[in-house]
């Protein structure tokens, strides 16, 4: 919560100017009139300025409000929604839900859709590009660990046989996890093949050059 105090001729005038300055609507913020202000008689005596305190919700609070609005309308039950900020992204955690399976959906389709919509809503409201992630009962982390352990096995195989292995098509976020993991190992490297929805990561021995397709990431 950000608190801003302003002075001026009258409380309504200050509020009006404030809304214009920050491009706000009445339901976007809270305010408190500290001093009504008076212009005295003919503006000569008792000339007191008006004072208004404004309370602006911060981005995390805004995202929380949007997430709650969306989940309530999806008839999803939960105990708590937590919004945190790290790694340049906001993470919305839906905690204590009774139907995580519903929220996640097949191949995380619903969860990803909720995440996408929440991203669009937030970007529109904040007028800048922000990254919003949505997680349910730690699902994303579990998936990340599962993916890493799978990639670990595959990279061992690649090292042993000296032959590259192509993974199944993955979402950008998951491909990123693979790239970052493989980057730590100097004996293997990654490249990406395919287009759009069907982009795949190839894990190949680091010593080998000359690949026909895609971009390479080497250490």
């Amino acid at each position: 919560m950000k608190i801003i105090e302003r002075q001026g001729k009258s409380a309504s005038r200050i509020t009006e100017d404030f809304m214009k300055e920050f491009n706000l609507k009445l339901d976007n913020f809270k305010f408190e009139v500290i001093e009504e202000g008076s212009s005295g008689i003919f503006g000569m005596f008792n000339n007191k300025p008006a004072k208004v305190k404004f309370y602006l919700p911060d981005i995390s609070e805004n995202i929380k409000t949007l997430a709650e609005g969306l989940l309530n309308r999806l008839n999803v039950s939960y105990l708590e929604i937590k919004v945190s900020f790290n790694d340049n992204a906001y993470t919305v955690e839906i905690l204590g839900t009774k139907d995580p399976g519903f929220i996640i959906g097949k191949e995380a389709k619903l969860l990803n859709s909720i995440q996408y919509i929440l991203n669009q809503m937030t970007n529109k409201q904040e007028k800048k590009h922000l990254i919003v992630r949505v997680d349910v009962n730690g699902y994303r982390n579990r998936r990340k660990e599962a993916l890493i352990s799978k990639v670990k096995n595959i990279s061992e195989k690649v090292k042993k046989n000296g032959k590259s292995i192509t993974l199944e098509p993955l979402h950008a976020a998951n491909r990123r996890i693979v790239h970052q993991f493989i980057e730590k190992d100097s004996k293997v490297k990654t490249k990406t093949v395919g287009e759009g929805e069907f982009k795949r990561v190839v894990i190949l021995p680091a010593g080998r050059n000359k690949t026909r397709h895609g971009s390479e990431r080497t250490n």
Binding site: L74, N75, F102, G105, K109, L110, I114, Y116, I117
Partner: peptide, 9 residues
């Protein structure tokens, strides 16, 4: 994405 939400509900 909106359609996915509608379908699920």
């Amino acid at each position: 994405a909106i359609r996915t939400l509608i379908n699920a509900v």
